[in-house]
Design a protein around this nucleic acid. Structure first.
Lengths: 231, 231
DNA sequence: AATATATTCAATTTATCTATTGAATGATAT
DNA sequence: ATATCATTCAATAGATAAATTGAATATATT
């Protein structure tokens, strides 16, 4: 006797959920939400051995969360489609609303750096039209290159202290990075505010901006969307 | 040296994801999406020993997916809030779009029972206002009792063959059950259509209808929303 | 107070997942 | 062709999760 369709389906859904069930893989997905990345770059950023990162990526691929393509001697991974970002957002929303530990982390780390409300995407769009605001992207240069907000200035967090001269102290700054739980923009806001800048954070980050269908910019060198392969 | 906020957060998110990573627990969540249920009722419906079901429920509770309250000698579990349904929907959407096996199951089981497009919630609402349609709920009686579509008739799938006289052969029937992947309404549609009834399925099921904020009905005997406890 | 019932806890075995290491594969460059 | 580099595979040991069983707890009933 074989299993019914219900058991088979829940088996598949559970496969997807288990793929999300590792901190390392969730972090990889956050990085992949910034754009396509190679195995070694991902391994380095999440602090894993390359072989180990490769295994995790294959698990994500088996779960239908990412796809890969070969580009010369590199294999590039990307999110399978935009429902994946929606799934990770739903996951963090549940955790945020129902786990006390998440609330505790938010209080002790995030609101200590920035207690202000973030600027909504809509508000930033209208203010961009009037040219009243500097948009600051504090992610590493390669992430900025593979896509960013229109007119954004890229100063990676590590270089911020040395490049303050590039920022107009009179104009309000809106800083953003990888997403709602990315620490870079929180650190940037705290650092800049201590130096007297008027700065707020953008609601969420680059992946959510892009997913909202708002206008984006991309550096010329980055290849335009290839057709991703499933295996 | 302690771990940073990013690692701590991803640890929490992964905890939620792992809780979804078991077919049994996903099935429990589908049942809980119908309304509050006791441990034994859930254990029986998903085919687990009571002690085993209890352990799974506690895992769901630690992950913030369900809450429980004691009612006399029973402990009743329910979904923690409406973001949980959103998470399970996002999970099945990713699986549906990116896993070939899910598509295969859909073809070989579901579209074999009903190849027609389901009736949208909006369409059903307008047709309900004109009284042109019989709404048929094929879930078990207790699930119907804890909440159903306005004016719906409850004939559990197992009793359907014996109770055909209750259905008007001239009027179109819209059948629904627990959700988009629940087999009950598919079986009901196939059975009724074979007997000449005009019948279609509703888009999704009861939990999604309720979450849409559309009007609902509930049997008098069922207690109205208590304040759920977290532990 | 004693008993019955529903649920949870604790301990065990079995199965599955993770990280590590070194070798194998597949593509490019010389 | 050979060498080189990025990635994947295979095998292992260690860690984590699942199902089972029997005992313990908490509430209701007698």
């Amino acid at each position: 006797m074989s299993i019914g369709p219900k058991q088979a389906l829940y088996g598949e859904f559970a496969l997807v959920a288990r793929a999300l069930g590792s901190p390392h893989r969730l972090e990889m997905l956050e990085h992949l939400a910034q754009g396509e990345r190679g195995v070694e770059a991902l391994a380095e950023r999440v602090g894993l051995a390359v072989a180990n990162a490769s295994q995790h990526l294959q698990q994500l691929r088996r779960a239908g969360l990412v796809t890969s393509r070969r580009a010369g001697k590199f294999v590039l991974y990307r999110l399978a489609d935009d429902t994946v970002l929606g799934l990770t957002m739903a996951l963090s929303e549940v955790a945020e609303r129902n786990l006390a530990e998440v609330e505790r982390i938010r209080r002790t780390y995030f609101t200590a750096r920035d207690g202000m409300e973030p600027v909504s995407r809509e508000e930033l769009m209208t203010r961009l039209r009037d040219g009243l605001v500097t948009v600051l992207d504090v992610r590493p240069a390669d992430e900025f290159a593979s896509g960013h907000l229109p007119g954004a200035v890229n100063i990676p967090l590590g270089e911020l202290a040395d490049r303050l001269a590039q920022l107009d102290p009179e104009q309000e700054i809106v800083a953003y990075c990888r997403g709602p739980w990315c620490v870079l923009s929180f650190e940037a806001v705290a650092a800049l505010r201590a130096r007297g800048f008027k700065v707020r954070r953008l609601q969420d980050g680059w992946p959510e901006w892009k997913a909202s269908g708002l206008p984006v910019e991309q550096d010329a060198a980055v290849p335009t969307d290839p057709v991703p392969s499933r295996h």
